[in-house]
Design a binder for these strands. Structure first.
Length: 421
DNA sequence: TCTGGGGTCCTAGGACCC
DNA sequence: TCTGGGGTCCTAGGACCC
């Protein structure tokens, strides 16, 4: 029987902030999304105050003030770095590891000796990560990834388990009968609605659902989930990171854009950033989409549009991306709207230099790609935005808010924490 | 006033081919 | 007046994830 563990960091972003600011321990803390929009990570104390995942900051302003909730902007440079350290520690417990997201890893524990006490083993993983990195975790184990995920949910929500839960066949049904079907990995709001309409309310109900019905209602994805709940593995560990198929740079604006010129600057900026991402992953794109849209939440007149182009030859040159993006923007722009968000999507990614050539276009000369690499190096060494294309402009009225940012403790010399003794 | 960003997978339907 | 069938590829859109 295979055995998988899912190790999940507890309220990861908040835990990272606490690592370098221990005063936050025991206090309600939230970390905001980009643009300081929504709460995306909440400490246990913040959850206890009723602060929901994804709630916009302005809706909890009074609560934040009265309860002295500590508010932080997100600091992805820090979280990415801590995440890599946690992964490094976990890989010592099993070489077969899939780093599923910034705060979760699946480990294949099938090769553990049969006499291993799994609860002890899970506890040892938690303790080691906590001691070496300082990040609290929970561990769920089961014979499929879906079961390990559910076990992790139980470990997180049942304090008596001590942060570790092994989902055995004997105890599964009793546990499943008391968990809402929406907690299952891959069952989102739309599926919950469909399932409840046919009387499937708990995880146990879903586990016992006829496979054909599952497929009809939720496509092949739903069928697989039911199989995984019944300990039949449909999804293996992905031990090697697969090359990305798409990349995107999209942002909401700090304040609405009204003028075409500002939008040109913003789209140029996103194109430059998108090119940078491609060059970092040594990829090129064959397809480019630009979209713009008004605010979807307020009463502003609505407008949303996008347009795409298939590139004659693959590229990751920021200037080429800008050159293609500008006419697309022109084709979708309409005067008179208050634009709240825009972005660039790059699809059909290929390895650098391996894309198909074109009879009538020559690929960008090496001299050109050298310019890009010099820019990337300067921006890496001296901070993002040190060198940039003039088209992006320097005023940038449209740029992001980030009012509560913590220092880049681990990725910038200037922000190194100082110790006093 | 203020509501995230960046991914993956699946399906339906149109275009196109022989 | 009669006007195929089967296959592939591409794209848009929905659902879901963290």
């Amino acid at each position: 029987m295979p055995l998988y563990a899912l190790v999940d960091c507890n309220n990861f972003y908040v835990s990272c902030e606490r690592l370098f600011d221990p005063k936050l321990e025991g206090k309600p803390v939230i970390v905001l999304s980009n643009n300081d929009g929504c709460a995306v990570s909440r400490s246990a104390e913040a959850k206890a105050l009723g602060i929901k995942m994804g709630i916009p900051l302005f809706k909890i302003k009074d609560l934040v003030k009265s309860e002295k909730v500590v508010v932080r902007s997100s600091n992805y440079a820090l979280y990415g770095d801590i995440s890599a350290r946690v992964e490094d520690v976990l890989s010592q417990f099993s070489p077969r590891i899939e780093n599923y997201s910034i705060d979760e890893s699946f480990l294949d524990l099938s090769d553990l000796p049969p006499e291993t006490d799994l609860h002890d083993f899970g506890t040892q993983m938690r303790t080691t990560v906590l001691q070496w990195i300082g990040i609290p975790t929970c561990v769920g184990m089961g014979s499929t990834k879906t079961l390990a995920k559910l076990a992790n949910h139980i470990a997180k929500t049942t304090p008596s388990m001590g942060g570790v839960c092994h989902m055995t066949a004997e105890r599964a049904d009793d546990l499943f009968a008391n968990i809402d079907v929406g907690e299952v990995w891959g069952i989102g709001n739309a599926s919950v609605k469909q399932l409840k309409s046919i009387g499937v309310h708990t995880v146990l109900d879903l586990k016992r659902l006829d496979l054909k019905i599952a497929r009809k209602l939720l496509t092949v994805t739903g069928e697989r989930i039911v199989q995984e709940l019944n300990a039949i593995a449909c999804s293996a560990l992905e031990l090697e990171a697969k090359p990305k198929q798409a990349t995107a740079v999209t942002r909401s604006f700090g304040k609405a854009i009204l003028h075409y010129h500002d939008m040109q600057e913003a789209i140029s900026f996103y194109a430059a950033r998108a090119g940078e991402k491609l060059r970092k992953s040594k990829q090129e794109c064959c397809h480019l989409t630009v979209f713009i849209r008004t605010n979807v939440f307020n009463d502003d007149p609505k407008y949303s549009a996008s347009n795409s182009i298939r590139l004659p030859i693959p590229t990751n040159d920021s200037r080429v991306l800008m050159d293609y993006a500008m006419p697309i923007l022109k084709s979708i722009w309409r005067d008179g709207y208050r634009y709240a968000k825009a972005g660039i999507l790059l699809n059909d990614l290929v390895d650098e230099g391996c894309g198909q050539g074109h009879l009538f276009h020559t690929p960008s000369a090496p001299k050109n790609s050298a310019v890009m690499h010099v820019m990337d190096r300067l921006n890496k060494q001296m901070g993002r935005g040190t060198v940039f294309q003039a088209a992006i402009g320097i005023k940038r009225d449209w740029s992001l808010r980030s009012n509560f940012h913590s220092p880049r403790y681990t990725s910038s010399w200037a922000d190194l924490p100082k110790a006093k003794c």
